[in-house]
Simulated assay, not measured.
Amino acid sequence: MILKNFKYKPVDDSLKLSAIIRLATIVLVLSAFFASCYSFKDVSIEPEAKTVRISYIDNRARIINPNLSQRLTDKLRQKVINQTRLSQTNSDEAHYDISGQITDYYVTTSGISNQQAATNRLNVTVHIIFKNRIDDKKSFETDFTRNFDFSASLSLNQAEASLTDLVVQNLTDEIFNRIFSNW
């Protein structure tokens, strides 16, 4: 047996301490590097802002995913309520007013192999209108477009089953960051 000749040798405590110090130094250097490359800003809300109205994001695209509007609206509401100090209201006088619609939802071929489609791409566009009633200069109206690739061997219904969560999460994050972040 190979283990017959193996003898346990205790590791010197100074070697353990030296290894821990080296590891801590590497972690600190990497942390400093990443902190200098990326800066994350907190949510930016005027001190006077107390309320937000998030209207239902209607689906006006040519192809309708029957779950997308409700799920996107709910996820955006949830994110705003959980990650800001704003209270949700249905009042026309809300300090922040978010509304929009899904304007495009279609599939294109994005990859070809052996003269056949290998990869398809789901393209989703949401038009958002943000009204800041405290500082109108921060109001905007813009489109958010995201693309999601999937195997051409899947039908759109099959792809939606696996992609809808990702679509909702990505669009919600992008909309939230555009409204509430300084980057």
Rank of each mutant, 00 (worst) to 15 (best):
K4E: 12
F6M: 09
K9T: 15
P10M: 08
D12L: 05
S14Y: 10
L15E: 11
L15T: 09
K16Y: 14
S18I: 06
S18T: 11
S18V: 05
A19S: 12
A19E: 13
R22D: 06
L23S: 14
A24G: 10
T25N: 08
T25F: 13
I26S: 11
V29S: 08
V29Y: 02
A32F: 14
S36H: 15
C37Y: 08
Y38M: 05
Y38C: 05
S39F: 13
K41G: 10
D42G: 15
V43K: 05
S44Y: 08
P47I: 04
E48V: 04
R53T: 10
I57N: 08
D58A: 14
N65A: 07
P66E: 10
L68C: 06
L72I: 02
T73V: 07
D74W: 00
K75C: 06
Q78K: 05
Q78Y: 13
K79S: 07
K79C: 00
K79H: 06
V80Y: 05
I81M: 11
N82G: 00
N82K: 07
Q83H: 11
Q83L: 08
S91N: 06
E93K: 11
E93C: 00
A94H: 04
Y96C: 02
D97R: 03
Y106M: 07
S110C: 05
G111F: 00
G111E: 11
I112L: 06
N114K: 12
Q116V: 01
Q116L: 01
A117D: 13
T119A: 12
N120Q: 11
V124T: 03
T125P: 05
T125V: 09
I128V: 14
I129L: 14
N132V: 07
I134G: 03
I134S: 02
D136M: 03
K137D: 13
K137M: 09
S139V: 11
F140K: 06
T142N: 13
T142C: 01
T142D: 15
D143T: 03
D143P: 06
T145K: 07
R146P: 01
A152P: 00
L154T: 03
S155E: 02
L156T: 15
Q158I: 01
E160R: 02
A161T: 08
L163R: 06
L163W: 12
T164K: 00
D165S: 14
L166V: 03
L166T: 08
L166R: 05
L166W: 02
V168T: 12
V168R: 00
Q169R: 09
N170A: 04
T172W: 00
D173F: 00
D173G: 01
E174K: 01
F176A: 04
I179S: 10
F180T: 02
S181W: 10
